[in-house]
Design a protein around this nucleic acid. Structure first.
Length: 451
RNA sequence: GCGAUCAUAGCUCAGUUGGUUAGAGUGCCGGAUUGUGGUUCCGAAGGUCGUGGGUUCGACUCCCACUGGUCGCCCCA
């Protein structure tokens, strides 16, 4: 067989044991917080019907969904004609890899509505796939940690998600800021500058404010057909700064003629009053220019940025009033937030934030001295394992130096040697690999020893 | 989908205006040291210089194409 050069697809990664220990630490930390707040786990398949996924993430999103070629003779009954790739895709692919966890969740809700208890609080930590061009902090396969409450309109849910976010990033000792806004405020802005139809354009443009600057945003708005007078009316929103309270007061004056805008203010006020009651240490800042690209958001929107490291957001979410209606279930408002496990990993790595205790879980290595000694060692191995001490016996009778080196490389703190002498005396030689100190102990002493 | 940049030993990287047999560090293997490692010393193995073409007496080096990595744009965790 020809030699195959080992490689994995662009934007995907292998994880070594060291990396997995750290990833599990992140996922376990997040999971335990989710569970403390009474969220329950679900899982959904990696692949969904393409009809479930398409059209939910905007045009760009559709392009970034990995599509799966139909099995068998996928060209049977397909008239190739002069079709473009886009026209051909739905004819030869009916499944795709999930793009996020929120849309499959909406599908799940509708499909299982009779078995679930509402309001339904769920968490879900699974990989998602995007056919994006990989770059810093961006992969084609990555884990999202989603948490959502569906079937409740209360702002208590928004506040709870903010509290959970606070707790999650405190657990990782990361210095973050939670940016909040409300889609209704953005609708209000679009309304009072008399461009209510251009809401999406306005959102995506002003979302880039801190990236391309004010000039860039203005140019983009102009390119997308906004009139100069509309853009002029938009200017005050960019300029205003102050406390959350000052921002809300400012908006209140601006929104005298916008009912939807005033609704947005009410929601934000209500949400923030709950937040105040929850004692949150992370700063929560209103930012009118926060928009977020996903077009299913209708109310609150959140985004979490890490102040220590320049990278995209580490979490994002919002309220969606109508996501389940495309699957046939109306009046089912939900709100959720998604934490990016990979980005948290990259940030912790960059700022040396992993706990030092995250080393190998292996406590003891038994040195292999030969056939007879193996059997002697194995009995002790069993007893240590029964006492819940992680240990292993080196499988081959090779030179001691090599076996000790193996312990060093795996950062195993203790080594046990049991050869002819020890068998005679019915004991074990326990060696501390850090200090080099070693002493003879009985099996009872071994089990009592703090390993 | 668009752009920039890079590709030499398992890993990190040198390699002169284009010139004989492509180097170092580290790791791996063996030995000094057959029941004692992380230090030291000695030795050995390891390369189609990303792939394919072109220029040249001669290419790791120059040119073109492709592939892959990284980083930006779009979009996003």
């Amino acid at each position: 067989m020809a030699n195959v050069k080992p490689s994995i697809p662009k934007g995907t990664r292998d994880f070594t044991p060291t990396e997995m220990v750290r990833r599990n630490y992140i996922l376990n930390t997040i999971r335990s917080i989710f569970e403390k707040y009474a969220y329950l786990p679900i899982e959904t398949p990696s692949i969904e019907n393409l009809s479930t996924l398409m059209g939910k993430y905007g045009e760009e999103g559709d392009r970034l969904i990995f599509k799966i070629l139909n099995s068998g003779d996928f060209l049977a009954n397909v008239d190739l004609g002069n079709k473009t790739a886009q026209q051909l895709t739905p004819l030869i692919c009916e499944k795709g890899l999930r793009y996020d966890l929120t849309v499959p969740f909406a599908r799940f809700i509708v499909q299982h509505q009779n078995e679930l208890i509402f309001p339904f609080k769920r968490y879900q930590m699974q990989p998602v796939w995007r056919a994006d061009r990989p770059q810093k902090g961006r992969y084609r396969e990555f884990y999202q940690c989603d948490i959502d409450v569906i079937g409740s309109n209360s702002m208590l849910n928004e506040a709870e998600l903010i509290k959970i976010t606070d707790e999650v990033f405190n657990a990782f000792k990361l210095d973050t800021v939670i940016k909040v806004n409300n889609r209704k405020i953005l609708s209000g802005i679009a309304e009072i500058i008399s461009e209510p139809d251009k809401i999406t354009t306005i959102c995506t443009a002003i979302d880039k404010l801190d990236k391309i600057g004010r000039e860039g945003v203005l140019n983009e708005l102009k390119d997308n057909g906004l009139t100069d007078s509309s853009i002029n009316k938009l200017m005050p929103f960019f300029d205003f700064s102050g406390t959350n309270e000052q921002k809300l007061d400012f908006l209140e004056k601006m929104f005298i003629n916008s009912e939807i805008g005033r609704k947005g203010i009410d929601e934000l006020r209500s949400m923030l009053s709950y937040v105040d009651a929850l004692t949150i240490s992370t700063p929560v800042e209103i930012e009118f220019t926060l928009a977020r690209g996903l077009n299913y958001y209708t109310g609150a929107i959140f985004e979490v940025k890490c102040k220590q490291v320049a990278m995209g957001s580490v979490a994002g979410g919002g309220r969606y009033d109508d996501l389940t209606s495309i699957f046939g279930l109306k009046n089912m408002s939900g709100v959720g937030i998604s934490y990016g496990a990979e980005r948290i990993y990259d940030i912790l790595l960059e700022c040396d934030g992993f706990p030092t205790s995250l080393t190998t879980p292996i406590k003891v290595l038994f040195i292999n001295f030969g056939k007879k000694e193996e059997l002697y060692a194995l009995q002790a191995v069993q007893q240590l394992r029964n006492a819940n001490i992680t240990c292993e016996l080196y499988p081959d009778n090779v030179k001691i130096g090599k076996q000790l080196n193996y312990a060093n490389n795996k950062a195993i703190p203790f080594v046990i040697m049991a050869g002819e002498n020890e068998i005679k005396e019915n004991c074990f030689t326990l060696k501390n690999m850090q200090t080099g100190e070693q002493k003879k102990v009985t099996i009872t002493q071994l089990l009592e020893y703090k390993l």
